[in-house]
Amino acid sequence: MISLRNVSTTFRGKDGDFTAVNDVSLEIPAGSIQGIIGFSGAGKSTLLRNINLLERPTRGQVVLDGVDLTALDDERLRRERHQIGMIFQHFNLLNNRTALQNVELSLKFAGIEKAERRRRAQEALEIVDLAEKSTSYPAQLSGGQKQRVAIARALVTHPKVLLCDEPTSAVDPRTTASVLQYIADINQSLGITTVVVTHELNVVKAIADNVAVMENGAVVERFDVADLAAGTFEPGTEIGRYLLDEEIHLDRTPLAGRRDPASGAPLRGRDGKELAHA
């Protein structure tokens, strides 16, 4: 179980401080898949990085199976990180290492012997059906394959937790389903507690058990995906309604009423008429 207790993260910048995560408390049951959804800049990626302390929270605690990660020294924290796999939107594979070497690296950092590294890395690539690509470099793989190598790299150390930062945002829609299928399968068969950050409602609907909606650094809404599927969930916030509304609405005449900055004359269309609201 992952417990986030009153977690806040503030970045100091030239133009003053920016609070990316604002007093978030969240309990993620062991073995479940937690979705975190929100628009760009809502703080969801920072919150995800708070879990493995890639981004150390300014305040609050992150407790993994009873261990307060925020209280650990660097050495202990590194050891805990071997228990927490992570995958990224842009895969973050090493370009100058083969698929197998990329997966092995994770084991090397975990202090596993070389002979065993090779065997376990092969095994992990087998799980994501990429055994035959073990000698390929990332440049020779498709986006979906790269993400699968990244998944193999994340799970090869037998972690308790898998953190997924926009795992399907850089792959096409068909590949999205395949990547999510692997994440779901791994969650099911290995019982890995999984956290998926995304801005795509389809992704959380497909994969998550519980969803937290974030806006301006705070969790503003939570729901069970089961309730959403059953149609019994009513979003209580505007952002929730917006996120659950899959239609895209466009203003048909967004330039109506604009004026040419030089002459001050109203903008005209190709037909010579002023732009007007439909």
Binding site: R81, N96, F109
Partner: peptide, 28 residues
């Protein structure tokens, strides 16, 4: 920062990040 972040998430030491990630990726 991508590969460095990945290596940190894997629990790499700073020395490992330099030797096994940065210098390998920067070799060409």
């Amino acid at each position: 920062s991508g590969v460095v972040e990945a290596a940190r998430a894997m629990g790499a030491t700073r020395g490992q990040i330099v030797r096994d990630v940065l210098l390998v990726e920067a070799r060409p």
